[in-house]
C-alpha cells in the first residue's frame, strides 16, 4: 500500500474538521491540546495515510502539506 503522511501547520489550523471528514483512511482527528489561537487542531491519529491529498484540497487555511512515498526504484 502507498505510504504517505501530512504535515499540518497547527498554528494556523482553525479546527474546522473538514479534513477529518475528507480523509478516506480516517487517519485525522482533532487534537486534545489547543493552539495559540485557541483552536483544537487537526493531527494524524494513525499511520494509514496514503498521501491522497484530499485533506489538503478541502483545507480552507492551506495548512496541510502532503507527502507520499517515492516510487521504489528496482535495484539494478
Amino acid at each position: 500500500m502507498i505510504k504517505g503522511t501530512v504535515l499540518i501547520a497547527t498554528d494556523i489550523c482553525k479546527g474546522c474538521e473538514l479534513c477529518v471528514a475528507a480523509c478516506p483512511q480516517h487517519c485525522l482527528t482533532l487534537s486534545k491540546q489547543i493552539n495559540t489561537k485557541g483552536y483544537r487542531f487537526a493531527e494524524l491519529k494513525n499511520e494509514e495515510c496514503t498521501g491522497c491529498v484530499n485533506c489538503a484540497l478541502v483545507c480552507p487555511d492551506a495548512a496541510i502539506t502532503v507527502y507520499r512515498q517515492a516510487k521504489i526504484k528496482k535495484a539494478v
Partner: peptide, 12 residues
C-alpha cells in the same frame, strides 16, 4: 528517515 523517502505531493 521516513520523511527522507517521501516526496511532497501537495503544498501551499
Amino acid at each position: 528517515n521516513i520523511l527522507d523517502n517521501l516526496e511532497v505531493v501537495y503544498q501551499k
